[in-house]
Amino acid sequence: MHHFALTIVGRDRPGIVAQVTEILFNLGCNIADSSCSILGGQFAMILIIAHPEFIDRASFGAAFQPLEEADLTVALRVLKAGGELHPDLAGEICMISVYGADKPGIVYHVAKVLGEKKINITDLNTKLVGSGQRPVYVMMIEAVLPASVSEQDVDTWIAPLRDQLQVDISVRTIPQVEL
C-alpha cells in the first residue's frame, strides 16, 4: 500500500478535522499516524495516510479542492516505500525544558547542540507566553538519548546556553517501564 504525508493548515475554527476526515473517509483512505494542533491562530494537521489503490498525487484528483476553497492550505507528499515505518528508537527518553525572556536563537542553539551530539529530537513544542512587555519563550523537547549518552552529559553540553541565552534549562529522563 502506498503512503502519503498530508499537511493541512488554516485559520482555526470548529469543523476542520471533520471536513478533512470526511474527504479521507469517502476516498477510502486510512489514517495511520497523525498529529494535529493549534499553533497561534492556525490549526495544523499532519497525517500519514494510505490508500490501497492510490499511487501518486494524481490519484487524489480534485478531492482536496473543497479544503482549498475553505481557505486551508493542503500539501501532499508521496512517501517512498518504508517511509511510513516508525524507526526503532532505542534509548532513554529525555525531556528538556528551556524557558526565559524571549530572544532570537533559543530553538536553534539548543537544537544545534543536540544535533551535533547525534541526539534525535522526537517532539518539540514552543510557545510564546507572558505579557507583551515581558514575553517569555517556552520550549519543550523530547529526545531519545543514544546508549552512550546520559542525562548528565546532555546537561553538561547544554549548560553554557544558560548564560549565553539567559534561559532556564532543565534536563530529565523519563523512565520507560513495561508493566
Binding site: 523519563i174 523512565p175 517501564v177 513495561e178 508493566l179
Partner: peptide
C-alpha cells in the same frame, strides 16, 4: 511521578 508506561496487553504503544 511520571513514567513512560507500556503494557504487555497493549503492545507497541507507550505513553507518559
Amino acid at each position: 511521578r511520571v513514567f513512560r508506561e507500556g503494557c504487555m496487553s497493549v503492545p507497541e504503544y507507550t505513553g507518559n
